[in-house]
Design a protein around this nucleic acid. Sequence first.
DNA 1: AGGTGTGAATTATTTCACAGCG
DNA 2: CGCTGTGAAATAATTCACACCT
Lengths: 196, 196
Amino acid sequence: MYLRYLEDLAARGHATASSDALANLCGTTPAQVRKDLSFFGSFGKRGLGYPVQELIDHLRQILGLGHDWPVVIIGAGKIGAALAEYRGFRQRGFRVVGVYDNDPAKIGRPWGTSTIRSTDTLDADVRAEGALMAVLAVPADHAQQVVDRAVRAGIKAILNFAPTQLSVPPTVSLKTVNMAMEMEGLAFALTNADPG
Amino acid sequence: MYLRYLEDLAARGHATASSDALANLCGTTPAQVRKDLSFFGSFGKRGLGYPVQELIDHLRQILGLGHDWPVVIIGAGKIGAALAEYRGFRQRGFRVVGVYDNDPAKIGRPWGTSTIRSTDTLDADVRAEGALMAVLAVPADHAQQVVDRAVRAGIKAILNFAPTQLSVPPTVSLKTVNMAMEMEGLAFALTNADPG
DNA sequence: AGGTGTGAATTATTTCACAGCG
DNA sequence: CGCTGTGAAATAATTCACACCT
């Protein structure tokens, strides 16, 4: 989060940023900002604030964003297709190296300069590209078997959009995004808002 | 989260579920489950566990899911279009009543039995439909002005996919989903995983 | 036995407040 | 002065452990 707002600041020409300014941007408190950043080192200059570009470089290094990450997208439905073309990924250093599906009607359809490929080729492709990350956008009832296959292929991190709990070995990172659940959280907030 | 797994259990015919069973499904601990649920009331039966269907009904009521929620989707790009057709929303009681864009090339294009509409009509439509929730899938540089307009129209809860910090009045709930940031979190986990 | 509900203990997170540097 | 870095204090969240119900 800090990285994103720092990049905004850099783009607008700010050379330094105080914990107070960052807190306002991020919706947190100055003390929180200082504690968070100090966890990774002592980046700030007293009386001045944090040097924006320097802190960006540090954070990118800490996050492991020194290079592009090849990513495969599994599931060429509406959501998978939207993600495959999502510019935000590319801009942040995630390079989509393949889109996969197990629907014969979709396999072979053009995607960019390549085509949608069968999940049967996942194993070979993942190894060839050195991809460690996958985005999963398949129906919930297929998700676990697809994950198992991806893990066998060598995938070590998965961003999951299927609305189901997946089990992966402890060596694999998994982050599930469930849009319906987010909406339910908002519905709860609405229901419990003070009348007005 | 509990609601989702309870519905799975109900579908599989389970009449009761222990905190232990729920914890396993949800990836948490039995003590956590009991503390969470006891916050809303005393639903469990000692020696038996929680009555699945009864707890589902309670949770749905607590979350305000007793009825459909009309929702507008703002932004008819790839992601907006994917969300507009996302079955998960409908299944969970969120009814998409309109898709909006400010691109003249997109306005008027068919969407379901209706068409993509101009954001100029948002105000009247939101009032007519009684929509309180919006999904925002527009470019980051348009997001704030669109949010302002939605808030003026009477929207009280927003699920935001634009990769930017939005400001809303305290009476409006906002949840931002940033997919690139989720990927960066996974990259960090990969970079800092023990070698193996 | 089996399993909840809940105070108490523990652990984690956030905020305070201030010494000390540029 | 302004603003960071950081112990100490205050809050919050999680886990323990056990009385008590069925």
